[in-house]
Design a protein around this nucleic acid. Structure first.
Lengths: 147, 147
DNA sequence: TTCGTTGCAAAAGGTTTGCATACCA
DNA sequence: TGGTATGCAAACCTTTTGCAACGAA
C-alpha cells in the first residue's frame, strides 16, 4: 500500500468513453486487478480500450488517490478502487486474489513514531499482507480452488 | 521486506570465483544495491561477472535467506546482506539510498493478530519505510546531496 | 477550433531462459 | 569424468513514450 497524496480536484478532466469504461470495469472487479486483466475484460465486454489508455487512466487514478495499488510477487502492479479517503492496508489471498481491508492503526502509529525518532523526513510506508484465504486452504476433499 | 523462509543448508553449493566476488561486493555495499550496480562494481573492481550470474546468485541468496530484498519505487529489486537471522524492516532514504534497520515489534505483533483473526493461513507481510535522511534534507545552504 | 486524449508501434528497463562452453569436485 | 556453473544472446513482461489522428468542449 502506498501512503500517497490525497485526491485533488482535476483542473481539466475530459470525460471520454474509454475512461468511463475503465472505471466501470474497475468497479466491477472486487479485488486487485492488473492493467492487463482490465484491458482483457474491456475487450471481452465489447468496449475495447487501448492498453496504453488503461495504463494512463490507472496512473491518473493513482495520482488522484482513487485507487489503491499493491505489487504482487512478480512486481506487477495491481489496482483496486479505494473504498474511502485515506489509505488502506489489505490482506490478499495469494491463490485467488481475494482481498480484504484490515485495520492498521497500530501500523500507522508505528510508522509515525519511526518518523518522529529517526531524523528522516517525509516518511512513507508500504505495508502488504498476503496469505491463503479459507476458501483456498487445503482440505481433506481436494476441490479445485474457487475461481 | 519479505517475510520469507529461513536459510536452509545447500545440498550442493559449488564455490566459484564469481559467487565469491558477488558476496564480497555485496558485503562491501552498506546499503541496498541493485543487481546492475553490483554488476558494475564487479566490473570496475576487475573481477567481471556476467549479469546473469549476478542475478542467479542473488536469487539463490534470497531463497536461502541471506539477503534482504526491497523494491524501489520503479519496481527494481534492491539487495542487502541480512544482518542476522529473522527478517528485518528498513527505513530507506529515497534520495541517497541510505538504509537503517528499524525496530518493528509492533508490526510483527499486528501481523500476527491479523493472521489469527482473519481465517487466512500462512500470512506473510511486507513492510517498507522510505523517507529523506537528514543528510539529504533541503538546507538554507544548498549543497549538493551527498553521494 | 483547440487542445487534451487515444492508440499503435516501438522503446525502455529489469529479469529470465536456451544453450554451448568452462570448470569445480 | 560428470554434472554444475557461467555467460552471451535472445526472449519475456510490464510499463512508458513518440507521434499522428481523433474528439470533447
Amino acid at each position: 500500500m502506498q501512503d500517497s497524496a490525497a485526491a485533488e480536484p482535476q483542473p481539466d478532466w475530459r470525460s471520454t468513453r474509454q475512461r468511463a469504461a475503465v472505471l466501470r470495469v474497475l468497479h466491477d472487479c472486487p479485488d486487485f486487478t492488473s492493467a492487463r486483466e482490465l484491458h482483457e475484460a474491456l475487450a471481452a465486454g465489447g468496449s475495447a480500450v487501448g492498453l496504453t489508455t488503461v495504463y494512463r487512466t490507472l496512473r491518473m487514478l493513482e495520482r488522484t488517490g482513487r485507487v489503491d495499488v499493491v505489487r504482487d510477487r512478480s512486481g506487477e502492479r495491481l489496482y483496486r478502487p479505494r473504498p474511502t479517503d485515506g489509505h488502506r492496508h489489505y490482506l490478499v489471498c495469494r491463490r485467488c486474489g481475494l482481498s480484504r481491508v484490515v485495520e492498521a492503526d497500530a501500523v500507522e502509529r508505528w510508522a509515525d513514531s519511526v518518523a518522529a525518532t529517526t531524523g528522516f523526513a517525509e516518511v512513507e510506508h508500504t505495508v502488504e499482507l498476503t496469505g491463503v484465504c479459507d476458501h483456498c486452504q487445503p482440505r481433506p476433499d481436494p476441490e479445485s480452488p474457487h475461481p
